[in-house]
Structure formats: structure tokens, C-alpha cells
């Protein structure tokens, strides 16, 4: 307060700095502080010997422990895979329909399937599985080849029109513009197809079109136009159109046919059996599964 503090050791002295009569003691630093400083140096040397440290032209010195962050990630992934192995085994051994109802395996399959989907499927089917022109929306209840889990599984495993898999799903709609039907016939059958969902623009052609349909299309799409899943023939009476439901697009489809493809994911082990089952469960639970 009133008295000026006196240094405990009289030989300390001051730094020589002075501000408004206030001087600064030149107190020596505690010795343990110096030890701590030496310890950090020793620590640093040991660290440099054990861990990657000195940058050279082609990467850093590796260090005695051989540590690398990539290696650590690989170890982590291996550990997670090892932990998931029993679950994967269970997914493969379970009946497909039973996977989703098992609480532990079901959650795992769904999350694993979502990860597989994000990696391999969203390029065509979209990140929300909403599809695109020519690539089916997997959220709705309309399925070309069937929406039960077995059908979804088969589609993923063997693909569609895949050249690598003999068991692939195959349908072969002719390009009716190549000598099968005249332009007039195509125009009339297109009007008939639109009429199936109540959207014909020229009623006068519908009747002619129904004859053309019965002769050329009903074999696969059915007499009532509701499609046939064994043939992968779409339902023409509903509100969902893979390539578009307007007149011009329907005429284009009839004239040139459509040959959408999907890889057979089991070929070359692109996806493991467990992964295929996971993604089948995931797609089945997106909202349209049967």
C-alpha cells in the first residue's frame, strides 16, 4: 500500500524500466521453469525420432514407430469392419424379409445400405433416390420389376440389361419405328396410351390405336395396359412416367424404344452379398416397398 515493496533478495535489482516512478524488478525465473524448457526439448527430440518429422523431397522422415495418419485410418476402418463382420454374416444368413424386422440387424442394414446407396446409386437415382428421366424414382410405389424385397434384391444383384450377367433382367421392346408400324399407327396408339390415364388429345385416333395396341403391345403391357412385371413392362395407366408422359415423348418411346441399363452389382464383387442385401433393405424402406 503505502510502502514500496522491497525485493526479498537485495541483489535482484530492477530492469531499469520506469513508468511514472514505478520500476520493474528483474526477478529471476524459477529454476523448475528452466527444467520444463529442457524437458520440452528432450520431448521434441524423442518425438522426431519416433514420429514422422523432417520434411524431405519425397515425404517426411518416417520415424521409428512407422506411424502415418493414413495407416491410422486404415486401422480404424479395419477395426470397424471386424466389429461389423458378425452383423454382415447375420445379414447374409437371414431371410431377406426378416432383416428389416430384426432391430439390431435392421438398423445396421438400413444405415449400411444408405452408405452404399450414397456411394454407388445416387449417380443415376439421385441423392434422395428421387430418380431422373430414364432412371426410376425409388420413393414411389411404381416398380418395373417388382417392389417386394426379393425383387429389389434380384434387380440390384443382376442388374438390368447387363452384359456381364447372364441372369440379368432383360426386356426387349422393339423400336416400332423400324418397319413395324407406320407413323399413323404410332400416332394413334400413342393417343390410346394417353387415353389409358384419361389424357388423350385426339379422341378420334383412340379407337384405331386400341387395335394397334392389342396387336402389338398387349402381349407385354397387358390387355388393360397395366403392365407386366415379369417382362419389366411398365404400367401405362398410372401417373408415373419414366421417360415422360406427354404425347411427343410417348411417340418417341414407341418409335425408338428405350433400353435403360443398370449394372449387375454382384459381378466382379462390385458389392458384397451383405452390401447388396443392405442396399435392398434400404431401398425397400424408402417408402414404396411392397
Amino acid at each position: 500500500m503505502a510502502r514500496k515493496p522491497e525485493p526479498k533478495q537485495k541483489n535482484i535489482g530492477t530492469t531499469g524500466h520506469e513508468w511514472d516512478g514505478i520500476t520493474e524488478l528483474d526477478t529471476p525465473m524459477p529454476r523448475w521453469w528452466l527444467w520444463t524448457f529442457y524437458l520440452t526439448i528432450i520431448w521434441g527430440i524423442i518425438y522426431m525420432i519416433l514420429y514422422p518429422a523432417i520434411p524431405l523431397v519425397k515425404g517426411a522422415t518416417p520415424g521409428l514407430l512407422g506411424y502415418s495418419s493414413r495407416g491410422a485410418v486404415a486401422e480404424d476402418i479395419a477395426a470397424v469392419s471386424a466389429k461389423n463382420a458378425p452383423l454382415d454374416a447375420k445379414i447374409v444368413s437371414l431371410d431377406l424379409a426378416a432383416i428389416g424386422s430384426d432391430p439390431e440387424v435392421g438398423t445396421y442394414a438400413n444405415n449400411g445400405g444408405a452408405a452404399v446407396f450414397r456411394t454407388f446409386c445416387i449417380q443415376c437415382h439421385g441423392s434422395g433416390a428421387e430418380g431422373a428421366v430414364g432412371f426410376p424414382n425409388l420413393l414411389d410405389d411404381d416398380w418395373l420389376w417388382g417392389g417386394d424385397i426379393e425383387s429389389i434384391y434380384t434387380t440390384i444383384k443382376h442388374g438390368i440389361r447387363s452384359e456381364d450377367d447372364d441372369d440379368t433382367r432383360l426386356s426387349d421392346m422393339p423400336a416400332f419405328g423400324d418397319d413395324y408400324l407406320s407413323d399413323e399407327e404410332i400416332a394413334s396408339v400413342a393417343q390410346y396410351v394417353l387415353s389409358l390415364s384419361g389424357r388423350a388429345t385426339d379422341e378420334t385416333l383412340v379407337e384405331d390405336g386400341s387395335v394397334v395396341f392389342a396387336d402389338n403391345c398387349a402381349a407385354c403391357h397387358g390387355d388393360d395396359g397395366k403392365g407386366l412385371r415379369e417382362m419389366g413392362a411398365p404400367n401405362l395407366t398410372d401417373s408415373i412416367w419414366l421417360y415422360g408422359g406427354d404425347l411427343a415423348t410417348v411417340i418417341e418411346t414407341i418409335t425408338y424404344s428405350r433400353r435403360g441399363v443398370m449394372p449387375a452389382w454382384s459381378v466382379d464383387n462390385k458389392l458384397s452379398e451383405a452390401q447388396i442385401r443392405q442396399v435392398a433393405v434400404y431401398v425397400h424402406e424408402l417408402g414404396g416397398g411392397e
Partner: peptide, 18 residues
């Protein structure tokens, strides 16, 4: 709300939001 996609059309024309 699941906004990707914002809605889904079902085969009977029903509009679904998730």
C-alpha cells in the same frame, strides 16, 4: 422435412411428403 425430393407422386396421383 425430407426435402430431397420435396414431394413424391405415387402411381394413383397421390402427393406424398416425407
Amino acid at each position: 422435412p425430407v426435402r430431397n425430393p420435396v414431394y413424391v407422386t405415387l402411381s394413383d396421383g397421390t402427393i406424398r411428403n416425407t
